[in-house]
């Protein structure tokens, strides 16, 4: 059976649970794994996520194409009042660093995928620093994000090759927006709409990596998506609701993904990858790649 926001909201209302509590309970029923065990696994996931983000901030790795960008954002933030606000700027810095580390085969936590691995840790860690959330609250945020990812995986897809970047950075931003409102104590309806408002803003987002690498535009998109997550969280917390119910938004995302041409689904053949500069970069890198179809 497909997971749904409706099911989570209904359970949270009848049992008096938060979105995360209801999502955990449903996961436990489906897998016959006790809630406490899942919570423990999620705690270790949170530890890994923090560790990989800290490593990434220290490492500032350069990819095959992109130089590390997070130090620029950090230096900029020290010297001025950023347009985005402190939390969003810090989230973007962490997201850029984590996504860069991922590009050079660093260890990360897929959230929901490796290509989108910066957004959720960016939001969680920055919110911890700037709003003083403790670990218990951050865990609530992570489990909420997991619940959102589960619904998207179940009703649509989390693969860029199937659904475009909607399914990766889009899903990650929805997870992050939902985590923010959940950590601030909002109920399941607000959490679901934070996710829905985010997904509505990224419908049709293509996966067009230059040279097929998870670098351009992936790394900067990780940074930028934290901004969308923050604004959508604010809109949902203000009581703004998606006219289209959250489950229907996810279903639409899947249909839009299916309708995207293959060139815009992680093949590195369309969009930014097909620009003159994108092609030039691919050609230069291609000279370094080993040849296939050579036999033994």
């Amino acid at each position: 059976m497909k997971a749904s926001f409706e099911e989570i909201i209904t359970l949270s209302e009848t049992e008096g649970l938060s979105f995360a509590g209801a999502a955990l309970e449903l996961e436990s029923r489906a897998t016959a794994v006790p809630v406490e065990i899942i919570r423990k696994e999620m705690t270790s996931r949170l530890d890994e996520m923090e560790k990989s983000a800290r490593e990434a901030l220290e490492r500032d790795g350069n990819g095959k194409i992109v130089k590390a960008d997070s130090p620029l954002l950090k230096a900029y933030g020290k010297g001025c009042a950023p347009f985005a606000g402190r939390l969003a700027l810090r989230a973007a810095e962490i997201a850029l660093a984590t996504a860069s580390s991922n590009a050079c085969m660093g260890r990360i936590v897929a959230a929901p995928t490796a290509g989108s691995c910066g957004i959720l840790p960016g939001i969680l860690l920055a919110a911890g620093e700037h709003r003083g959330y403790n670990r218990k609250t951050l865990l609530e945020g992570l489990i909420t994000a997991g619940g959102i990812g589960k619904v998207i995986a179940s009703r649509a897809t989390l693969a860029g090759a199937e659904g475009g970047c909607q399914a990766e950075c889009g899903a990650a931003a929805a997870m992050a927006a939902a985590a923010l409102v959940a950590m601030e104590g909002h109920g399941a309806v607000t959490v679901s709409h934070a996710a829905a408002l985010t997904l509505k803003s990224i419908l049709g987002l293509v996966c067009d990596p230059v040279a097929g690498l998870v670098e351009v535009p992936c790394i900067k998109r990780n940074g930028a998506m934290t901004g969308l997550a923050v604004v959508c969280a604010d809109m949902a917390a203000a009581g703004i609701r998606s006219v289209i119910p959250p489950d229907e938004v996810v279903d639409a995302l899947f249909k839009v993904g299916k309708a995207l041409p293959e060139s815009l689904r992680e093949t590195g053949l369309g969009g930014l990858a097909a620009t003159p500069s994108g092609k030039r970069i691919a050609e230069e890198l291609g000279k370094k790649a080993p040849k296939l179809d050579q036999g033994f």
Partner: peptide, 11 residues
């Protein structure tokens, strides 16, 4: 997991 791609590397 090890990056850069959950589907193309870890998967």
């Amino acid at each position: 997991m090890t990056g850069p791609s959950s589907s193309h590397t870890a998967g």
